[in-house]
Amino acid sequence: MDNKPDEEACLFAMHLTTSSVLPMILKTAIELDLLELIKKTGAKATASAAELAAQLPRNNPDGADIIDRILRLMVAHSVLVCGLKLLPDGGFFARNEDGLSVGTPCLKIQDGAWMEPW
């Protein structure tokens, strides 16, 4: 029997618990029951930060932003996975039927000639 995947998972878990910021985020996520809320959505279901924040007992106007940051950090450390869910209209960064999107001004603003002076 090959225990290598179990050993690697255990080593990864130990790495996660001995780092600095991630354990604090995990503690917060556990205290808020975020992982339980995500689990309740089901294996193939999706949940946005706003949807999760709405299920928390406290109403915090910045709740969705804070939950989003927590989730992004956990995704960055492979605790969770993240996927792209397009909006019904294809999203703001995809071109519409007129060929326009928010992507064009983003490219202009991030252009080297604009950013270098900063």
Rank of each mutant, 00 (worst) to 15 (best):
K27V: 03
D68M: 07
L26V: 02
L22P: 01
T28Y: 03
V81T: 11
L52T: 05
P5Y: 14
I30S: 07
L35M: 08
L87V: 06
L35S: 10
K44V: 06
E31N: 12
C106Q: 04
W114G: 02
S101F: 06
K108R: 10
P88I: 06
G63P: 02
A49S: 12
L71H: 04
A43K: 10
A29H: 14
G42I: 02
I66N: 14
I38P: 00
K40R: 09
D89G: 15
D62P: 00
G90R: 03
S20N: 10
S101N: 01
M1S: 13
P23G: 06
A50E: 13
E31K: 03
L100K: 12
D62I: 02
N59Q: 14
D6E: 15
G83R: 09
Q110K: 10
E51P: 00
A43Y: 04
R72D: 05
G112D: 02
M14L: 15
R69G: 04
E116W: 14
N3S: 11
M24L: 14
S48E: 06
S20L: 10
T41H: 03
H77V: 01
A45C: 00
R58I: 13
M115H: 09
A13P: 00
V102I: 01
A13D: 12
L22A: 05
K44F: 10
L52G: 03
L16R: 09
E31S: 10
R72Q: 11
F92H: 10
G63R: 02
S78E: 00
E97R: 12
R58F: 13
F92V: 13
F12N: 14
G90P: 03
L56Y: 07
S48I: 07
L52A: 10
A43L: 07
P23F: 01
W114T: 15
L84F: 08
F92S: 13
A29Q: 10
K40W: 03
